[in-house]
């Protein structure tokens, strides 16, 4: 699977950004909220994994830094800048957290990291939207990236919270809403592409045809995962971590399939297919 590095990069980065963002949001509301140290650490590891994976995708990984050289016009440069920035800010904020120093700076940093992360997700979206690939050009890319950020972020937060998770607000419901929003965009996205001649149509045909089953599976997994996630938050199951982990596993698979589909359906307009 030649797109694996990019699948990993986008998923890991988005998950990390989402996790940090949720943590910051929660703390905004609730000063007493848990410290989320593990969350920060896992987010840091995830973004490191993501960045490493993205290097694998390069022909010359050692020159990766030079991809910052064209901030003036390249969304890829910007994506790297903000992803890298997020990582650095996160690293600092993790270090501060660990040393339990400079509480206010820590908060500011967490916010800064979140904001930079959100911009990074925007840059990622723009990067794909600026290609000649109709399946990526639509606003759906942004919707999908931000939704993934929030969904996976919540998942990370819950898993890393351990026992403390019971004190967390009902993010599961937020996630449920997000998935519905995401799904609400799908018909428009598909019919929009199908209405285009050429590459767009071919992408739509792929998603509805050869990858039709996967497309359906993806949403079944997402919905199923969310359902279990919500279930795991009900009083009856709140104590059973197993359900949460199952939910997380299923959501991850769903997100992975989603990303996989994004890449395989990415047919460029080109010669002969317009």
């Amino acid at each position: 699977m030649k797109d694996l590095p990019l699948i990993l990069f986008t998923l890991c980065m988005q998950a990390a950004i989402g996790a940090v963002l949720w943590a910051a949001l929660i703390r905004l509301k609730d000063k007493e909220a848990p410290a989320f140290k593990t969350n920060t650490l896992v987010a840091l590891i995830l973004s490191a994994v993501g960045i490493l994976a993205s290097l694998v995708h390069l022909g010359k990984p050692l020159l990766a830094m030079t991809s910052l050289f064209n901030l003036f016009s390249s969304w890829l440069s910007r994506e790297i800048l903000f992803s890298g920035g997020f990582f650095v800010l996160l690293a600092i904020s993790w270090w501060l957290e660990r040393s339990e120093k400079a509480e206010s700076a820590r908060n500011t940093l967490a916010w800064l990291a979140s904001l930079v992360g959100l911009v990074a997700v925007f840059a990622m979206g723009q990067l794909y939207m600026q290609t000649v690939i109709p399946a990526w050009q639509s606003a759906n890319t942004l919707v999908d990236f931000y939704a993934t950020t929030l969904i996976l972020g919540a998942v990370v937060l819950f898993v890393t919270a351990g026992k403390e998770r019971e004190k967390l607000p009902r993010l599961d419901l937020a996630v449920l809403a997000i998935v519905f929003v995401q799904i609400a965009f799908v018909p428009g996205y598909l019919t929009g592409m199908a209405a285009m001649a050429g590459a767009g149509q071919e992408s739509a045909a792929l998603l509805a045809g050869s990858y039709g089953l996967m497309t359906i599976l993806r949403w079944l997994f997402m919905l199923g995962g969310i359902f279990l996630f919500v279930l795991s938050r009900t009083d009856k199951f709140a104590k059973q971590a197993g359900i949460l982990y199952t939910a997380v596993g299923i959501l991850l698979i769903g997100a992975f399939i989603g990303r996989f589909l994004l890449y395989v359906s990415g047919i460029p307009i080109g010669i002969g297919i317009i």
């Binding site: 022909g59 010359k60 290609t131």
Partner: peptide
């Protein structure tokens, strides 16, 4: 660096 972005562009 062989990022391939131009290929998509």
């Amino acid at each position: 660096i062989g990022c391939g972005y131009c290929v998509w562009s």
